[in-house]
Design a protein around this nucleic acid. Structure first.
Ligand SMILES: [Mn+2]
Ligand SMILES: [Mn+2]
Ligand SMILES: [Zn+2]
Ligand SMILES: [Zn+2]
Lengths: 139, 139
DNA sequence: TATCTAGTTTATAATAATTCTAAACTAGAA
DNA sequence: TTCTAGTTTAGAATTATTATAAACTAGATA
């Protein structure tokens, strides 16, 4: 995993979405995408991580802007689960989640791990936008 | 549907939950439960309805307090669906929903209308608290 | 029935997450 | 190097919700 290679990749990726590869966006790209496993986060947690032990801070407004831009560009997926906070996911494939009410953390469930053998037809004129299941768990 | 009969019923119901049957709570009971079909609402919509064309207003704080008390008492169920607003449901049975992203409205799906033929086991030490599906729909 | 008090209502303040605003900054085209 | 549209930023504004504390009231008790 050679960082500079990934950096070039992120520059390309951002340009292809008409997003200028600023140092803030690249720093966030590295933090979010230089990893093997899927990553679930809130703006609050991302902000803490990005600005931990770093001289040059990225403003909270930029974290919000960037997460929104990356979501619109399809780099991130928003997971609707909690009533007071938005969750985001680096795994943009269609998949399901466990949501732990205690730790407030999401865990991936592979799409094939849930089989919906019967699904109702949506009301006329409407179509299903998303059928991802969130299973709430607790101790 | 004789209102006074229902009123007596609500008084009993409230007393059985250690909630004093105040005029505000009874008014809200009548609005929420004097109906045949299931009712989905947010605090905002309930507040508007309760205080429409009425001389004596119920404060927003009381609407919040009452919805919370009724939810704790098991008269209402909270539906976690939207990222910025809490939804409540007079249908307290386990069931599923369509959530219309356009109108931001919930519609019931009877429990038997969705069959989950394969469900993953939760992580060790955790158990499933709730497995209700919200299907997001749009035009 | 009058008194008393814990529970309730209410206006208002506080909080938390998010969005908006507008000035300063910068990527990168020309 | 210059220029400008896009970006970052601090801080204000907004929205939903929760907390605070004073006034009110249900209903038990005298
Ligand atoms: Mn919010
Ligand atoms: Mn909120
Ligand atoms: Zn995920
Ligand atoms: Zn429902």
């Amino acid at each position: 995993m050679i960082i500079s290679d990934n950096l070039k990749m992120y520059v390309k990726k951002l340009r292809s979405s008409n997003l200028r590869p600023t140092k803030q966006r690249l720093k966030i790209c590295q933090y979010l995408f230089d990893r093997d496993k899927t990553f679930h986060f809130t703006v609050e947690t991302l902000n803490k991580k990005i600005n931990k032990n770093r001289a040059t801070k990225v403003s909270l407004a930029t974290i919000y802007n960037t997460v929104e831009a990356f979501t619109n560009a399809g780099y991130l997926k928003e997971i609707l689960t909690s009533k007071n906070k938005s969750y985001y996911d680096t795994n943009i494939k269609s998949h399901h989640h466990f949501y732990d009410e205690g730790s407030k953390e999401l865990t991936d469930i592979h799409y094939s791990q849930i089989k919906l053998s019967k699904v109702p037809t949506p009301p006329k004129g409407k179509k299903i936008k998303n059928l991802e299941v969130v299973i709430r768990i607790q101790k």
